[in-house]
Computed example of a mutant assay.
Amino acid sequence: MLWLSSADNTAPALPAAWLIATQAQPANLPERSTLRRSLARKVLARQFGLAEDAVEIGHEPAGRPLIVAPHGSGLHLSLATRAGLVAIALAHLPVGVDVEQVALASEPPLAVLHPDERSWFESLPAPARPLAFAQLWSAKEAYVKALGTGFARAPESFTVQLDGSERFTVRDDQDGRHASGFIRLTKNGGHETMAAAFVMLD
Rank of each mutant, 00 (worst) to 15 (best):
A139Q: 03
S180H: 12
P12N: 11
F168L: 05
Q101S: 12
I20A: 00
L131F: 01
A7G: 01
H178V: 09
S165N: 09
P26S: 11
S6T: 09
V43F: 01
R171P: 01
A80L: 01
A111E: 13
P61I: 06
Q23S: 15
G58K: 05
F198R: 11
L131H: 04
E166N: 14
R153G: 02
R129H: 07
R36I: 00
V86M: 01
R37F: 01
P12C: 11
H191V: 02
A111V: 12
R46K: 15
A196N: 05
E117T: 10
F168H: 05
A11C: 12
S138R: 01
Q174C: 09
V99P: 02
T22Q: 02
A91T: 06
S73H: 06
P61W: 03
R171N: 09
A87L: 07
L104F: 10
G49Q: 08
A83D: 14
Q25F: 03
V170C: 03
L79C: 04
L4D: 11
P155G: 08
A134M: 06
A24W: 00
D98M: 04
A11D: 09
A146F: 05
V55F: 01
L66W: 08
F133Y: 14
L124R: 12
F182L: 15
A195C: 08
A103W: 03
P109C: 03
Q23I: 02
E156S: 15
H191M: 13
A91C: 10
A132L: 05
N9R: 11
V97P: 00
A27V: 11
V97H: 01
Y143V: 07
E100N: 02
S5M: 09
L39Y: 00
V99S: 03
D8Y: 04
A91K: 08
A13Y: 14
Q47W: 10
L14C: 10
L185W: 05
L110K: 13
A195W: 04
D163V: 13
V68N: 09
E60C: 02
E117I: 07
S78T: 07
A80T: 02
R118I: 01
R36W: 00
L136M: 13
Q47L: 10
V43M: 03
L93Y: 09
A7L: 00
I88K: 00
E141M: 05
V112Q: 11
A11G: 11
D173M: 10
A45T: 07
S6N: 11
S5E: 15
L124N: 06
D173F: 04
A179L: 07
A91L: 07
E52Q: 12
P115E: 08
F198T: 04
R171K: 10
A146N: 05
V86Y: 00
A111F: 12
A54L: 04
A154R: 15
A139L: 04
H191Q: 15
P94N: 10
A51S: 15
L2K: 14
S180Y: 02
E56Y: 03
P94S: 10
V160G: 02
F151H: 05
V160E: 02
G181H: 07
K187E: 12
P65R: 09
F198Y: 13
L29G: 06
H76G: 04
S5D: 15
V160Q: 01
Q23K: 12
R171I: 06
S106H: 11
P94K: 08
H114I: 04
